[in-house]
């Protein structure tokens, strides 16, 4: 068998591409249930906020805690199946950092309108998805840009019913993303 240095280089590039593609598709597969979970949380949370704005804070605290626990358990389940090495603690760290950053930003910038409070987490999460997309695959970036675009559209055009918009369109976009990520 004869293999030239050029053929060997091409073979190594094929290996790298295949491994990269496997990594990207695996990321979509693992991300899908998290999108379905958080899509449902957005639907309930923003929907509740639209209907009962005065009780929005305890509702969001409970939903965020529940979503974080659910995401952690999804991570643990993947670890138990041997799919990922991480046992879910990294997930807790990401959610904890994101919530802390959000609260600190509120403390400094002090938003004045309800819609500002509601729009910021969605934009922050969109930004994180775009960052993830730079490393983990284009679909993440697409989701980030779509959710950011929908958030801004609702904020600019439908501020009176922004929470309803985010429940239906934002939550719906995350659920659709979950279904999209499940497809190969």
């Amino acid at each position: 068998m004869s293999i030239s240095p050029q053929q060997a280089t091409e073979a190594m590039l094929d290996i790298e591409r295949a491994q990269r593609r496997a990594f990207v598709l695996r990321g979509y597969e693992l991300g899908a249930p998290h999108f379905l979970l958080w899509g449902a949380i957005w639907f309930v949370g923003y929907g509740f906020t639209e209907a009962f704005p005065a009780q929005a804070l305890p509702c969001w605290i409970a939903l965020t805690a529940g979503g974080t626990l659910g995401g952690y358990l999804l991570g643990r389940a993947a670890a138990d199946r041997g799919i990922v090495a991480d046992d879910g603690r990294r997930y807790l760290a990401v959610v904890g950092s994101t919530v802390a950053f959000m609260l600190l930003t509120y403390a400094i910038l002090q938003p004045r309108h309800d819609a500002q409070f509601a729009a910021f987490p969605a934009l922050l999460v969109s930004f994180l998805y775009v960052l993830a997309g730079i490393w983990k695959g284009a679909r993440w970036a697409v989701v980030g840009m779509v959710v950011a675009g929908l958030t801004m559209a609702g904020y600019e055009l439908l501020q009176q019913h922004f929470n309803l918009w985010m429940a239906l369109v934002g939550g719906g976009a995350l659920v659709c993303t979950g279904l999209w990520f499940r497809r190969v």
């Binding site: 073979a11 094929d14 290996i15 790298e16 591409r17 295949a18 491994q19 593609r21 496997a22 990594f23 695996r26 041997g82 799919i83 990922v84 090495a85």
Partner: peptide
């Protein structure tokens, strides 16, 4: 080669 690279990237 691509099959093996993909499978080799899977966790044990």
């Amino acid at each position: 080669l691509k099959i093996m690279a993909t499978l080799n990237a899977l966790p044990p």
